[in-house]
Design a protein around this nucleic acid. Structure first.
Length: 272
DNA sequence: AAGCCTGCCAACCGCGGAGCG
DNA sequence: ACGCTCCGCGGTTGGCAGGCT
């Protein structure tokens, strides 16, 4: 994960920092502060350039630096501020105590930007059994090897499509997919939760805010949260809608139409 | 078991702005 | 006004870890 140590043409060490180097830098700055980054390494007994020392201190050694998992609140702040400020990582970092611009930048590139890329490959990225996500006694684990065809294609849906255009289109696609796979999708929907990255569905959902799409038993259905209306093409029982599970709804809407399910967070407009 | 692929993140690099003489 | 130095920012890279085939 880190670059191997090496020596550049000026005799300066590059690459991963050792514990000894960290200790030298930490103790020097704690004692004298960083009055001049260029001269600091010389006085601290480090064979590093000032830039490298500054980076190591700011992003790693500085007291209070928070690292690791971004909370839901932090994610929302980053996304909101990025919408307002763009790639002003240092400005965003100012609003997130303990987070460095470098870490926010990494977070953005690896987690957020990737999810927003329209041509990002549609493949499952993580799998959790429904039982892990909920307390439902009905939840059981199930094999994930279902051959369900994604019902959307890039040509038919876009982020600019209106909700009026999208809903009938989605409805037709869901119906067709359910018919093809018979009751399988419903079972999967009820018992299995997969996180996935599936841009076509993501965009359709973004464009249809206020609506959710899911499967019932042996049928597909579309529910409109905003007005409470409900369409159901099947005559059979369709009352089992797993995304009503409170444990799931805490995180946002669980959106499903086949085994490819994940959480949609309306506040960040992203799947997690 | 081994090779390949992808995600993640620490660290590097280049550039621009601020400060100073 | 100009040139130089230093600092900080944002983009990019390198390589480990873990999952997949």
């Amino acid at each position: 994960m880190v670059r191997p140590p090496s020596i550049d043409s000026n005799g300066m060490k590059k690459g991963a920092w050792s514990e000894d180097e960290d200790q030298k830098l930490r103790s020097y700055i704690q004692r004298y502060g960083h009055w001049n980054w260029r001269l600091l390494p010389k006085y601290a007994g480090l064979k590093r350039c000032g830039k490298s020392c500054r980076l190591r201190w700011v992003n790693y050694l500085k007291p209070g630096v928070k690292r690791g998992h971004f909370s839901k609140e932090e994610r929302q702040i980053v996304i909101k501020l990025h919408d307002e400020l763009g790639n002003k990582w240092s400005a965003i970092a100012e609003k997130l105590p303990g987070r460095t611009d470098n870490e926010i930048k990494n977070f953005w590139h690896t987690r957020v930007e990737r999810r927003r890329k329209p041509n990002h490959s549609a493949k499952p990225i993580n799998t959790l059994s429904y039982a892990e996500k909920t307390d439902s006694s009905e939840a059981t684990s199930l094999s994930t090897s279902h051959d369900l065809t994604p019902p959307f294609d890039d040509a038919s849906l876009s982020t600019n499509s209106s909700q009026d255009e999208l809903e009938p289109m989605l409805w037709e696609m869901l119906k067709a997919d359910a018919a093809k796979n018979e009751g399988l999708a419903a079972h999967v929907f009820n018992e299995e939760v997969l996180e996935f990255d599936y841009p076509e569905l993501r965009y359709s959902e973004l464009s249809c805010s206020g609506s959710s799409y899911g499967s019932g038993l042996n049928s597909w259905a579309v529910e409109d949260e905003a007005c409470g209306s409900f369409w159901n093409e099947s005559e059979s029982e369709t009352s089992s809608y797993s995304y009503a599970n409170p444990a799931v709804e805490e995180e946002g809407l669980l959106l499903g139409y086949d085994p490819l399910l994940q959480y949609f967070d309306y506040e960040t407009s992203l799947f997690w």
